[in-house]
Amino acid sequence: NQASVVANQLIPINTALTLVMMRSEVVTPVGIPAEDIPRLVSMQVSRAVPLGTTLMPDMVKGYA
Score class of each variant (00 low, 15 high):
42 S>I: 03
54 T>R: 03
4 S>F: 03
26 V>Y: 11
9 Q>M: 14
64 A>K: 15
52 G>A: 07
14 N>T: 05
28 T>L: 05
11 I>D: 01
8 N>M: 10
51 L>C: 05
61 K>H: 13
20 V>G: 11
62 G>D: 11
32 I>D: 00
25 E>V: 07
62 G>Y: 10
25 E>A: 15
29 P>H: 06
29 P>T: 06
11 I>C: 03
29 P>N: 06
35 E>P: 07
51 L>E: 12
21 M>A: 04
16 A>P: 07
47 R>L: 08
12 P>R: 10
23 R>Q: 10
39 R>S: 09
50 P>E: 10
17 L>H: 00
10 L>C: 06
23 R>K: 10
64 A>N: 13
54 T>P: 06
39 R>V: 09
44 Q>F: 13
43 M>H: 08
31 G>N: 01
53 T>E: 12
54 T>I: 10
28 T>G: 06
45 V>G: 01
31 G>E: 01
14 N>A: 11
3 A>H: 14
40 L>I: 05
18 T>A: 06
60 V>H: 00
28 T>C: 15
53 T>K: 07
51 L>T: 13
13 I>Y: 07
4 S>H: 01
21 M>Y: 06
51 L>F: 14
49 V>Y: 02
59 M>A: 12
21 M>K: 03
36 D>F: 11
49 V>T: 07
25 E>F: 05
27 V>L: 06
9 Q>L: 10
58 D>C: 15
6 V>L: 14
15 T>E: 07
40 L>E: 00
48 A>R: 10
17 L>T: 00
8 N>Q: 11
50 P>T: 15
64 A>Q: 14
39 R>H: 10
56 M>D: 04
3 A>R: 06
29 P>A: 05
35 E>Q: 12
11 I>T: 02
43 M>L: 12
54 T>S: 04
36 D>T: 11
49 V>F: 03
38 P>K: 13
28 T>M: 08
27 V>D: 02
45 V>C: 05
4 S>V: 02
44 Q>D: 04
45 V>R: 00
11 I>Y: 01
25 E>K: 06
1 N>H: 11
8 N>H: 15
64 A>C: 15
43 M>E: 05
48 A>K: 08
62 G>Q: 12
2 Q>G: 15
33 P>E: 05
10 L>D: 14
34 A>W: 09
16 A>I: 06
64 A>S: 14
24 S>V: 10
57 P>W: 14
39 R>I: 12
